[in-house]
Amino acid sequence: MKKPTLTRHRTFDPNPVSTNKLQSSLAETERTRALFALAFDSPALDMPHLLWKTYSEFEISEAEYERSKALYEMLLERTKRLKLWISYAQFEAFAMIKVVDLADKRKCVERARDVFERGLSYFRSCGPEMKEERATLLEEWLEMENRFGDVELVRGKLAPKLKKRN
């Protein structure tokens, strides 16, 4: 009986997210960043928002908050999706969890409020067809204020129907 031979095949993973997660798990920080940059330039990229999210999570895991913030801003230049506004505001708000200084914690909440304001302004400028997005963004903002800040700041912006729920 003949022994089976093992053959090594080199495979290419077309999914840049899994490739980059592998690189980051190997502590190849600069290489991972370079692969993310290459993936963004790929014309075959079918779900760029997942790649951006993974890249941002990678930078956060590296404690590179300014790089993460820059990624959010770059993505907002390309798309204005509701989930992106919420994710960015949450990133800013929850950055304060690791902050010790009270003044810095206030700055984190202020930055999150600024993101919510910008998102609200964008959806307001889009007209009545974005009414649901505005309401969802306001609900998320109210939830953040319930945890960290000033609920009254958001209540004035809520539609009467939403005010009754809270």
Rank of each mutant, 00 (worst) to 15 (best):
C126T: 10
E132C: 07
M144Q: 01
L153Y: 15
L153V: 14
F148T: 14
G119R: 01
S121M: 02
E129K: 14
R124G: 01
L142K: 04
G127Q: 05
D150M: 00
C126R: 15
T136D: 11
G127Y: 04
V151C: 12
E140F: 06
G119H: 01
E140D: 09
N146I: 11
F123E: 02
A135H: 11
E143Q: 08
P128N: 12
L137K: 07
P128L: 11
V151R: 15
D150H: 01
E143W: 06
K131F: 08
E133A: 10
L120V: 07
L138T: 01
S125W: 07
S121W: 00
S121L: 04
M144A: 01
E117T: 13
S125M: 06
M130H: 09
V151F: 08
Y122M: 00
T136Y: 07
G127E: 03
E139V: 08
L142D: 02
R124C: 02
M130Q: 11
G119V: 02
L120M: 10
L142C: 03
C126Q: 15
E145I: 05
L120W: 08
L137P: 05
G127M: 04
D150N: 04
S121H: 03
T136A: 12
D150T: 00
E117S: 11
E117F: 11
T136C: 10
E132F: 06
L142A: 05
A135Q: 14
Y122K: 00
R147F: 15
E143R: 10
L137C: 04
S125T: 07
R134W: 06
M130Y: 09
D150A: 00
R147Q: 15
E132V: 10
R124I: 06
L120I: 04
E133S: 09
E117R: 14
K131L: 09
E139L: 11
E140N: 13
G127W: 03
E117Q: 13
A135M: 11
E143D: 08
G149Q: 06
M130A: 11
G149V: 02
V151S: 12
E129R: 14
R134D: 03
G149S: 07
A135E: 15
L153N: 13
G149M: 05
E139A: 12
T136W: 04
E143T: 08
N146D: 12
E143A: 10
F123Y: 15
V151L: 12
E145T: 04
P128E: 14
R118M: 01
S125H: 05
E145W: 07
E143N: 07
R118Q: 08
G149A: 07
R118C: 02
M130S: 11
V151Q: 14
A135Y: 08
E132D: 13
R124L: 07
V151T: 14
L137T: 07
S125Q: 09
L153Q: 15
P128G: 09
E145V: 04
E133V: 03
W141A: 05
R118I: 00
M144L: 10
F148W: 15
C126Y: 02
E129D: 14
L142M: 05
G149W: 02
E139D: 12
A135C: 09
T136V: 12
L153D: 14
L120K: 07
L142Q: 03
N146M: 13
N146W: 10
E117N: 12
E133Y: 08
F148A: 14
